[in-house]
Each structure stands twice: as C-alpha cells, then as structure tokens.
Design a protein around this nucleic acid. Structure first.
Lengths: 150, 150
DNA sequence: TCGAAAAGTTAGTCTCGGCTAAGAATTTAC
DNA sequence: GTAAATTCTTAGCCGAGACTAACTTTTCGA
C-alpha cells in the first residue's frame, strides 16, 4: 500500500506527483545550464580583459583540457550563444551577451552579499561560483538588499 | 577522485595554473557529489518517515524513473554508502549515515538562514536544495550565526 | 623564411545520469 | 492458491563532460 499521502496521481502517466520532486527537478535543470553559464560569463570576462577569448585561455581558467573546451564551444554555438571560426577566437552572440550579463549580475550580488556577511574574499569567490546558479530571483533580491544595507 | 593538481604551475604538465581555475575545479568536484548526497539524505528521510527506503519512493521523491534509481543505487553501493539486496529496501552504511547527517545539517542551516532572511518557505526549500552543496564550512558558520540572531 | 612551438581540432574512450522497453520477482487481491 | 498489479532489474539508447593521443593550422622567432 502506498503509504504516501494519497495525492492526485494514479493517472496513466506515473509522472512525479510529489511536490518535493519538483525542487529536485529544478535543481537538475539548473545544473544543466551551469556549464554554459560558466563559459559565457568567462568568455565575456576574457574579452573585456584581453580583447578576445581564446580557447586556450578558457581552458586555463576553467582548469580543463583543450578538447573539452572545443566540445563545449561546439555546444554553445549550437545553442546560439557564441559564434566562432575554426582556429580563431570566440565571440558572444547577442543572446550570449545577455546571458553573460545576467550571470555577472548574479555573481556580483552573491559575492557582495557573502562579503557583507563577513566572509573572506577568497572563500566568498569560491562559494559564489557554486551558489550563483542556484539562487532564485527572490533570494537574489534579498541578498542585494542585505548587501546594500548601511 | 579528483586528482587535483597541487600548485606548481609552469611545469611540463600544463596543469591549470590559474588560481581561479581551482574554484571551478572545486565546483565541478562538488557537482559530482551532489547526486550521492541527495540520495543519501533522502534515503535517511524515508527510513525515518516510513521505516524503510524503497526505490519506488526514492524515484517519486526525486522525480526520476525507476531504472535511474537502480543505477544510482548501484553506484552508491559501490561507494560504500548503502547496502541492499535485489528487490529489497535500501539501507545506509555507517559511512552513508554520516554523510546523510552531514547533509541534513547543511540543509537545515541553509534553510533556516534563508527563512530568517525573509524568504518564503517554499522558495527557501527550493533554493536550499541547490545551495546546500556549494557552501563552505566557513560560510555555513556565518549562516548559522545569522539565523540564530535574536 | 622556414622550422619549431603553440594552439586548435578530431577521434576515440570512459563515466554519469537521464530515458524506454521488456522481463523477473514480489506483493496484493480475489 | 493463483492471477493480476506492482516493484525492481536488465539491456540498450542518448548526450554531456571529462580525458589522451594524434593530427592540422597558426604563430613566432632565430
């Protein structure tokens, strides 16, 4: 017997009735975008700092090997976030630039928040890197408010 | 098993000199453990609530299909976090119980913190699910302190 | 200028984490 | 006590993301 609360499942589709399940699904969904966000954010940074984003620099910053970057960039291009030509630097599309901007915004809010909370800069940077992909807009707003408190 | 390279840069091994790269590597390393942590934490909950953890319940709570659970449990067993017999419930090993306890602790601190910050319970639960795997001990301590403030 | 070094790509492997379809084991219900 | 329903596993597919080895292209410097 289903000891679970009798909810409105029992349909032909045994499709995940549990409300808790939704949280996990959202987390998994977020995880799927994390890499793309990391790349796009980094590419924007590199372009800003050095005028261009070369795969070798991306690999160094992310701590992965070159072929990993090549494959990831292929995917980003497929998704319309970047444009590139073989053996050349990478550029963000309008869509990619928008995403990068969004990511940077989140990252900075989380970072400022953590530092405001009393965390050292180094740890704050590391934690922000992990957390930024998992904060809802609502939470982000609270972070921003707290960080801006006098 | 992150064979994480130490610091020596500029050696023959073109191993990730950038200090920023370390942050990404840590994030990736954390990501690899997330699933295991989710499972173990959930298994502990189910045992507490229903006296046993059945794969079908795990699947429902996580919002995945049964075979996905079977495979994941195989891996957890390989890693020594659970024990099981075919067609039976799942049990945590001592190691698994320790990890579950640790996860629950993190989860609760993050959750209490978010709620204390003013977030609604539902969003807090969702965000906590994503954030809990990415907070350092140091950050967690700050969260706890803040949450406990009168 | 041209040859070596650096950068980038391709090909192939591995693990993980999803899925479906189908079959085996267990439990339930009559 | 057996048939049906449920649960669990197996087999096989797929894409992502990591890697190495080996090859091509580009860049640099003597």
């Amino acid at each position: 017997m289903t000891c679970d609360s009798s909810s409105t499942e029992a349909t032909d589709e045994p499709r995940l009735a549990d409300s808790r399940a939704e949280a996990f699904q959202e987390v998994r969904s977020a995880r799927r975008n994390e890499l793309a966000e990391d790349y796009v954010e980094l590419i924007a940074e590199l372009i800003h700092e050095h005028g261009e984003a070369r795969p070798v620099a991306i690999a160094a910053r992310l701590g992965v090997r070159a072929p990993t970057v090549t494959k990831a960039l292929d995917r980003l291009a497929r998704e319309g976030l970047i444009t590139r030509e073989r053996y050349r630097s990478v550029f963000l599309t309008e869509k990619g630039r928008a995403l990068a901007h969004e990511c940077r915004r989140r990252h900075e809010i989380v970072l400022r928040f953590l530092i405001r909370l009393g965390l050292d800069a180094e740890t704050a940077e590391r934690d922000a890197e992990g957390i930024e992909h998992h904060v809802s807009e609502r939470t982000l707003a609270l972070f921003a408010t707290y960080a801006d408190q006098a």
